[in-house]
Design a protein around this nucleic acid. Sequence first.
DNA 1: TTGAAAGCGCTAACAA
DNA 2: TTGTTAGCGCTTTCAA
Lengths: 340, 340
Amino acid sequence: MREIADAAGVSVATVSRALKGDPVVNEETRARVAETAARLAYRVNPVARSLRTQRTQMILAVVPDIGNPFYSYVLAGIEDEAQRNGYAVLIGNLSGDASRLRAYGDQVLSGRADGIILLTGRPPGDVWLDDFVKIAPVVALCEPIAGVPFVGIDDRAAAAEAVGHLISLGCRRIAHIRGPRHSAAADAREAGYRDALAAAGLPVDAKLIGTGDTTIDSGHRVTTTLVVAQPDIDAIFAANEEMAIGAVNALRALGRPVPGAVRVSGCDGLEFGAKYFPPLTTIEQPRPDLGSTAVATLLKVMHNEDVPSMKLLPHKLVARATTVDQVDHTHERTTQDFDQ
Amino acid sequence: MREIADAAGVSVATVSRALKGDPVVNEETRARVAETAARLAYRVNPVARSLRTQRTQMILAVVPDIGNPFYSYVLAGIEDEAQRNGYAVLIGNLSGDASRLRAYGDQVLSGRADGIILLTGRPPGDVWLDDFVKIAPVVALCEPIAGVPFVGIDDRAAAAEAVGHLISLGCRRIAHIRGPRHSAAADAREAGYRDALAAAGLPVDAKLIGTGDTTIDSGHRVTTTLVVAQPDIDAIFAANEEMAIGAVNALRALGRPVPGAVRVSGCDGLEFGAKYFPPLTTIEQPRPDLGSTAVATLLKVMHNEDVPSMKLLPHKLVARATTVDQVDHTHERTTQDFDQ
DNA sequence: TTGAAAGCGCTAACAA
DNA sequence: TTGTTAGCGCTTTCAA
């Protein structure tokens, strides 16, 4: 900076002002500085700037499992919106170890990032987090955390819609594979499942509810258990896409055709569900929008602007071949029919 | 730091030394400083440290599409190994816009990150990158870049293995859906395809080679075109998992049973391929290992240690139901058969 | 074994 | 409209 100040015949202060577009500098000076900086391939040092301004222009996004396409696609939205606002994105990945959350939180407290987006929810018994969210800019994404601005979909309503869809198709013995015990989103979806049954005057049977761990394998396992014990099950609502795929695989292994004998709905709207065979009925979430909305919210929090305690984005029920009967899969089918 | 120096009755210099475990400080002093720091919940400010040391302890990982589970799972390996070595990971996502690469490179040049891992290959015509890799610590991951240490699998050998597998099953008219034109990995896989045909004394027929863009849809489209034009095709080797899934879907739409009429192999080893119906034969890549190896290599580059210009990790051919005939899918099948 | 002090590269008072 | 200067929080000579 010293160099380019000398080369342009001004002070470093003017260089600083010119480069960040401070309207107070003379236009002609600004142009000269810009030209000199470009000629010398000068780049401001973000570290020095951060030390001075006490802002890093970085946000941290923590996901439970970055390998999961649901999270990674949300992350794409986060990265995109952050980039657009001049922020870089640091990633944190719990991959099953919720205790890592604290290390990531420390990155914010120590000043490596200005704010944090948590897709992790509140791990059970983590009192540390309760204090953390009071002193750091935080947004909860997809999984709510008490006392933290939340961005997500209306999980309860979404689940009720999916189950309502199954009911409208004539299903009466509808099983539910819910997500992990400590997940508030899983609780909300189970509540939606119950809502829909109640609205239709159907009884809630605890024997029709199983708990998975979000993986394909768990969906497979839970489905096998449920269907063997309750052979009259005529539909399954799985709390995510992976468990729904596991459910379809299990039903196939059990010789129960989908959707002929049992209809299946997932939740989340992954591309692999749409291209699965048969294509999966699901609730589509606006994943990139969720990410970008979370960033926009976090930026407001960081600037001490008011934000709603909860921002719900629209979801969409997409009915596909695992619930809706379709024509036979023969030569006459065009490729389009499969691609949606 | 000033505070804890006063509280512990030493100078800031000693605090600094004590905190980073400089062996020169008196053990008793070190303990007192450590205790005081803990009591006051002191955390070193990484920004100030970075400004002084000129190292940020951050690395940048740039992927073509973070929503793709191949990349995101590699990213998990990157994050894990980086974390273990005290580095944080910044993400860059091109999402189709190769020109963004330059902006990410600038982050390294301006000192926001110490090094960069590129999963992007070298975008065509990007002369800027050629200069960049000479002045910044870079590792190329999965997609090679001339003049840059490479970490990946032996794509050519892997492809040859997959095609050899198809040949060993009696296939003679084997089509190949290759990846994008500008991808060196796609070139290597096509070369492996040709190798395997040549090794078996089979002719290479240009009409059997189609080019996809890595998406499921492109695999579907290319397959339809190829198979309609060459109805005697008895196998397809797709250069990735998504296009293989598209191929299977297309074949189903065309009424050509897999593997009965046409056998299909993918490449990469995504979980969704293994749980697809039918489960997909593929080449499994050690995705997390690729990520962690790339980080280890990058750290060496950053420390000016010697690194091999190419580090190849082992891949594995996994034969599943899209190439290997299996018993009928009836009630007798256990769930295990499907889960592998 | 410890302390004093310089300085990493920048921004923002404040003064001119 | 521009320049001078202090200082962000740390590490690292150099001296004691």
